[in-house]
């Protein structure tokens, strides 16, 4: 099967803004499905609410789009009821780490065999650019107009607290992203993939990036691929398991 068969091509162009990173994540997830030769009957994608939450609706199989923050328990219900299926969560940073943070901790604890892909654009994209739990310290957003006073959540720390599969990649490093998603899907047990992603409209623009290309270039310059690390530094991408 071609990667396009996993997508509802007739729904494109998508509802995302020009220059958004979510399309890169969706497309490459479908390419991984193709590379793994997965049957459509054997996979489902579950999303929460947000711009990234719309992702499930673009996959051409039975998919579920739940409530804000609740994609993980929804997906776990599917996986526990249907262990024969590969269950993937595709959602935003606010959704998975903010409002749904408690579920993330407990999915790690349960080690439910699902793959969670977090499109981390560091912002609440859908609602217009409020600070997310992943917004860096000092950054100005519409709910931190004088600069974010708090540190972002250490999501790697949460996932690794129970020694679960954790990976970070970016929307620039496409080959890396694909290999990371592939390994996460093949991993037995809970896996979490943080994809540093570009939201130019509600985040990058306010930081002074002129377009998505500038943001991607910034990812290229900032993030270094590391292998066999025990822990990823903030500017490193790779897999810890």
């Amino acid at each position: 099967m071609n990667f396009k068969d996993y997508l509802k091509i007739e729904r494109f162009p998508s509802s995302w803004c020009p220059g958004c990173g979510i399309g890169i994540v969706v497309c490459n997830t479908a390419r991984v499905f193709e590379e793994l030769k997965l049957k459509k009957e054997d996979i489902t994608v579950v999303s929460g609410i947000g711009c990234t939450g719309r992702a499930a609706g673009y996959f051409n199989m039975d998919t579920i789009h739940g409530l804000h923050g609740r994609a993980i328990p929804l997906a776990e219900g599917v996986k526990i009821a249907r262990p024969d299926m590969k269950v993937m969560v595709l959602s935003g940073d606010g959704d998975l780490i903010g409002i749904g943070g408690n579920h993330l901790i407990h999915a790690c604890k349960r080690n439910t065999d699902i793959t969670v892909i977090c499109n981390n654009n560091h912002i609440y994209g859908m609602t217009g650019g409020q600070r997310s739990p992943m917004t860096d310290k000092g950054i100005k957003t519409i709910t931190s107009p004088y600069g974010n006073e708090e540190d972002p959540v250490n999501v790697q720390g949460i996932v690794r607290a129970n020694k679960r599969f954790f990976a970070r990649t970016t929307t620039f490093h496409i080959l890396h992203m694909k290999s990371v998603i592939k390994e996460a899907i093949q991993h037995k047990g809970f896996s979490f993939v943080e994809i540093v992603s570009n939201c130019v409209e509600n985040y990058g623009r306010r930081l002074g990036f002129k377009n998505a290309y500038d943001m991607l270039l910034n990812f290229k310059q900032t993030y270094k691929i590391v292998k066999d690390a025990k822990e990823l530094e903030w500017d490193e991408i790779g897999i810890i398991k």
């Binding site: 609740r70 328990p73 776990e76 219900g77 009821a81 408690n102």
Partner: peptide, 26 residues
């Protein structure tokens, strides 16, 4: 019967919804 002692009631009901959609009565 698949049984989960969930972390809270929101997780419990969401799991039940996921299971009902994908498998059967919950």
């Amino acid at each position: 019967i698949k049984f989960v002692h969930a972390e809270d009631e929101i997780a419990a009901v969401m799991m039940a919804i996921g299971a009902s959609i994908s498998d059967g009565k919950s």
